[in-house]
Nucleic acid binder design. Structure first.
Lengths: 219, 219
DNA sequence: CCCTGTGGCAAACAGTTGTTTACTGAAACC
DNA sequence: GGTTTCAGTAAACAACTGTTTGCCACAGGG
């Protein structure tokens, strides 16, 4: 029933392989909602997928390698999202509102991905930590480039721009973490707490924006 | 050789018990430098201490319970430190320098504790996460109280003060994480990277401080 | 001085883990 | 159409896990 839905350029062979690979990633991500990567067992994952333990090795050498793959999957979508927000040139107040709403939306749509990144950013698996750090750094560079292009940054040193970008990225990650942690509670209070978090995030961004406007730019 | 160094009010019995309990905590903390709590085994800890696995249950029901104990131990010292910084009323510029230096110092002295908190703040063990969150919240309240007492906060709403306190606490945790992550590299670059992190942190705090000064206080 | 409370021990338990081995069947290639 | 490639299998491996049991040695209070 789905033989025509696979990209024509891929053989049936490779398509099937990619399918189980994705199944492994999905199963791992689901299991990681309630534990951390360094305690996630290979057999645990294959059991959920319904595949023999040895089959795991056809796709990943380690659980660490699977983790790195999850990092890429998780941060790719975020990349797209924030790029869209940065693209539109608008009033500061409005870009703040849009950013916070975009983050909230992203968390609503990919809660497991966000949780995974927040958890493993300082987690027990070195390779995964480094993958996340590298991706967030590229992320910061991107934000810095966007900031530098704005007239509000005239006369700013590159380091100062990068510093501000870091502040924004850190704040974004903290806000996303707060959202995803709040959604773990019962859905009754979920809405209220979500709005409280968004409100605080907006005020914090407004304060930062204010500090930015009064930053002593070297001539 | 140390029979006279124990507090006289404790019997030999309780003193010995506390000693092995502390040994368990220390061993766990050391092991947690390279893995996360949810993957740390009970036997692993007792093996390092040199004690039978069953002995563990005389002190903790779970690894989770041990984790909560570690949270208290880890954040107690930080509490003391930041209280000292907040106590002294000084020029904004100087309080920033002192704060960053105090954080750097604290990380240098208790790297394992800081790493543990950063790792388990979003880690896989619910009870530990909640313990950390609760402690950080109390922490934020304390900072908020100190901020409210300053004349720079005249006319601020309580929510705004709490929002600013949250920003400071988050920033403190992020900075501490950055320090401890940097110290994992080779000691050659350690000094340089440490100064870079401190420098960025100071500039970020300065920008926040600037935003604070220009925040529209309701009359 | 004896008795009780208890921190720690050794042993055994059923499960689970990661990894290797030789294999099968079907897609892909010439 | 025969042959090669390879994703997935089943079974076995030693090593490890958390937890329970009965026991001992000994500090502390009477």
């Amino acid at each position: 029933m789905n033989s025509s839905s696979t990209p024509a350029t891929l053989g049936v062979r490779q398509a099937q392989k990619l399918k189980t690979r994705q199944a492994l990633l999905d199963a791992a991500l689901k299991l990681l909602e309630e534990q951390s990567l360094s305690s996630l067992g290979l057999r645990e994952v294959t059991r959920v997928v319904g595949v023999a333990p040895a089959a795991f090795y056809r796709h990943f050498r380690d659980m660490a390698e699977l983790g790195v793959a999850l990092v890429e999957e998780s941060l790719a979508s975020l990349h797209v999202m924030i790029r869209a927000v940065l693209a539109e040139q608008q009033e500061a107040e409005e870009v703040i509102d849009r950013s916070v709403e975009a983050v909230a939306d992203h968390v609503r749509r990919h809660p497991a991905h966000v949780r995974f990144v927040a958890r493993e950013r300082h987690g027990g698996v070195r390779a995964v930590r480094e993958a996340i750090a590298a991706e967030l750094a590229r992320f910061g560079d991107e934000v810095a480039a966007a900031l530098a292009a704005q007239e509000a940054s005239r006369g700013w040193s590159a380091e100062d721009v990068r510093m501000l970008a870091g502040l924004y990225v850190d704040h974004l990650v903290m806000t996303a973490s707060a959202f995803v942690e709040a959604s773990a509670d019962d859905p009754a209070e979920e809405r209220a707490e979500e709005r409280a978090i968004a409100d605080t995030a907006r005020r914090q961004l407004r304060l930062i924006s204010l500090g930015r406007r009064h930053w002593p730019a070297a001539s």
